[in-house]
Design a protein around this nucleic acid. Structure first.
Lengths: 216, 216
DNA sequence: ATTATTGGATAGTACAACTAGCCAATGCCT
DNA sequence: AGGCATTGGCTAGTTGTACTATCCAATAAT
């Protein structure tokens, strides 16, 4: 399969494929001569994965590169790959050196995680993300203590996370399992968000009613 | 309050405040002379809201402008504001004129929504988002039919959405209620995503074990 | 032999979200 | 009343991201 065919098979334009090759997202094809390389089904698959992480997961190219590097590193366990993916997904949160409100929020986050009995790495950037959300809700005057978020976490998220991990096909190759894990993390997040908004619209229609003070 | 004090109170740099004023995100202060304007608590509040939507909700400036316009439009009902927010949140999905796979995915999405008995506008862009997620999962060979997503929707999201709508303070001013609605939509989405990833890490630690084939 | 395609490299584009600089008018302080 | 600092409004520049376009010489296909 040459580059033009890879482009046709994946729907990704040739210049973009070249860009992904340059950026190290896509492994080089097998060189058959100085000016020709052969691509295979694995490249099509990898392109699909890249596009999924990019378009549905909204990950930046740099994050995708890190995730794919973890996927390809056979020495990493499933749990480590997940950790790498989580690390890559987490947006940079600029440090708040000695911001008291920040530390309070971070403490609240840690307390919630501990109370739920969740086993989360002490260095996980996700803890900071949670602190940021708590801090933001707090600043806006909305309930944001651990207790307010707890029903979300307990009733809904444990169920979902359990299901997601359980759905990984462990009986196939490592690559397949690991890809499913990464996609599950990123794309299922999106799926859940979309479903939440749909449920929200439905609940809003029922509770507030469709009719408004006026139409738009 | 002058612009420098607004900047100090909100933590947003003056040039950025000027930028938001230009972009129509922040209403102009009350002009007290040709070269002086007075800002108030409402501006501080609005800046906090903007930063929340931007940093936590990751909405682009253009989307924030639309959301805020809906918040400020007193003729819109709660349900309409929510709809506007959902519309602004939804990323542009380029149309797939006569892509068969796309239509199948969209049909699957509509079927799922109907089966759940959810009351969702037929034109809601969220329907397309759901279709895109289904299509992506499908292309990657992961279970993505309505049935696969159904437990997510049923057991988890209805609960969450119900809770979110219920938490809106309807006994206060319209502005407060509407802001809570918008923030709830955007920031709670983030909160949930973060909690899901934390639960996932915990589930992964329990199921796969911390130990890997190797360290990182 | 000729025409088209490929890989590799470099440079340019488009958009988003700021950030910087300038200027004349004014406010505030003494 | 005089003078320095601040303000609002303007225009332009910067940074970062994800591409997109163009060239070029070396092949491969016909």
């Amino acid at each position: 399969m040459r580059i033009s065919q890879l482009s046709a098979a994946s729907g990704v334009p040739i210049p973009t494929i070249k860009y992904y090759l340059r950026e190290g997202l896509l492994p080089a094809g097998e060189q058959t001569s100085a000016t020709r390389a052969e691509y295979g089904a694995r490249h099509v698959r990898r392109l699909r994965l890249i596009r999924a992480l990019l378009e549905v997961g909204r990950l930046p190219i740099a994050a995708i590169r890190k995730v794919l590097a973890a996927v390809d590193d056979e020495t990493l366990s499933m749990h480590h790959v997940l950790g790498t993916a989580h690390y890559a997904i987490a947006p940079e949160i600029e440090p708040h050196p000695d911001d008291e409100a920040w530390h309070a929020a971070r403490g609240e986050a840690d307390r919630l995680i501990a109370d739920l009995g969740w086993q989360v790495d002490a260095q996980a950037p996700t803890r900071d993300e949670l602190a940021q959300v708590i801090l933001t809700l707090d600043r806006l005057g909305l309930p944001a203590t651990g207790e307010a978020l707890r029903p979300y976490a307990e009733k809904a998220m444990e169920l979902v996370a359990e299901h997601e991990i359980g759905v990984i096909p462990l009986d196939r190759t490592r690559e397949e399992a690991v890809e499913a894990l990464v996609v599950g993390t990123v794309v299922h997040g999106r799926a859940l968000d979309v479903l939440r908004r749909l449920a929200q619209e439905s609940a809003s229609a029922r509770i507030f009613g469709i009719s408004g003070t006026s139409g738009d």
